[in-house]
Simulated scan of single mutants.
Amino acid sequence: MAGSSRASVVTPTSQNQDGIPAELPSAIEIDAEDKTVTLPLFQGRGPDDEDVHYVLTETSGLDHALRLGLNWAPKLRNALETPAVQEVSMGMSEQFEPRNSQIRFAGTVDFSSDRNVAPGPDGFPLDAENTQPGSVGDDAYSPFVTTPSRNVVFNAPHVENSTGEHDGLVEIDKESMTVTLELVEGFYEERGELYLSTDAYPADVAALEGATHAPTLSGAPAAGDRDLESSAREPIFPIVNGPMGEDNPERQGLRSAVAGEGGPLNVTRSDQVCHDPQGPTDCSLFYSPLWDVHPIVWTEAAIEEGRRRRLTDREEIIELVLAGDLASAADGPVNSLLGNVRAANAAVNCPIISVEEEGSQSRPSDPYIA
């Protein structure tokens, strides 16, 4: 997939539609060179009967995922009956159908603010008092929605309404009902991946991500928990103090991102692939777009002895934590399944759009090809 100049655009229509492939099936176009994705755009109604435009990326129901071309995220069901899921009314319909113009959201987003990211003394952590996200959800808004039956969850982030547009929005076409959004680069098992960053909490994390601040996401179970029966989250590892330098091939980290050198190049714990829907053990049952933030720092000893480098795999991160080269940068709940790394009081809605094929092991900014 990556590492060739034959093409920079993936057209997921060429993928095997029997399962959940390594590219979001409903994506119209994925441009890995420009780091954008074009998705179908849907229209609903806000709480005051205003137009709301949104996209769909995940669902907890496998049948719905296959029918609509979405990522399957079964753990999202564990967020039902929490503030992290808002109920939508469907008019006369009982099934969630995105082309149903009668869909009404209980909450919505104010996109009118100017985003501002204020570096702290070391770049990151940020100066939270002077940092502001570009959009904020109201008390009822969550990107995760369910119908009155409350048996399935959909990831439906709002991207535009009368107050403005999401900070990640590149182009919106209301005639063709498509929207192009910016993508973020990261790693999964030494492979490059591209994902959206649509919603987050708290406010400073949302501002850094260019995401909507959605405080209701804090109600999703639970920081530091990735159990299939209880958690709606899955870990992500941002490296706080990775190597710096815009042209440094080892560059990575939150401080590098705040300095304007590029994205943070986070490492995720799971992917979204489901090769065989008839055998769910061949699927990423742990996958969730709601990433539980587990920030990591290189220790002074590792830096002084020249062991700091770019990290691309969560197993490598856990090994380095156990070896003492890395340490938790948060004081939240201990995740006993991840080398006792601590979770932060933060989560980000980051649907995976594309993951490189196994064996490619290329670095970000290499072109993806079909």
Rank of each mutant, 00 (worst) to 15 (best):
M1K: 09
M1E: 10
S4L: 02
S8H: 12
T11A: 09
P12K: 06
P12I: 06
Q15K: 06
N16C: 04
I20M: 03
P21A: 04
E23W: 14
E29K: 15
T36K: 11
P40R: 07
V52T: 10
T57L: 05
E58W: 07
H64A: 15
L66F: 06
L66A: 03
L68W: 14
L68N: 11
K75N: 09
L76G: 04
N78L: 05
P83E: 03
A84L: 06
Q86A: 03
V88E: 05
V88M: 07
M90R: 13
G91C: 08
Q95I: 15
E97R: 15
Q102K: 13
I103L: 13
I103C: 06
F105D: 00
N116V: 13
V117D: 08
G123M: 11
T131L: 02
V145R: 07
V145T: 14
N155G: 14
H158Y: 01
H158P: 00
H158M: 12
E160H: 10
T163F: 05
E165M: 05
K174T: 10
V179M: 02
V179N: 03
E185H: 04
G192V: 11
P202H: 07
V205M: 09
S218A: 15
S218Q: 15
A220Y: 09
G224R: 10
D227V: 14
R233V: 08
P235E: 04
F237C: 11
V240I: 15
G242H: 12
P249K: 10
E250F: 05
G253R: 10
R255N: 07
N266T: 09
N266G: 10
V267S: 07
T268F: 12
D271I: 12
Q278N: 15
G279Q: 14
P280H: 10
T281W: 13
S284M: 07
F286L: 04
Y287W: 05
S288G: 13
I296P: 09
W298K: 12
G306K: 12
G306A: 11
R309Q: 10
R309F: 03
R314K: 13
E315S: 08
E315N: 11
E316Y: 03
E316P: 04
L322F: 01
G324K: 06
S328G: 00
S328D: 02
P333D: 00
L338I: 01
A344W: 03
N345D: 06
C350S: 09
C350G: 01
C350L: 00
S354T: 00
E358F: 12
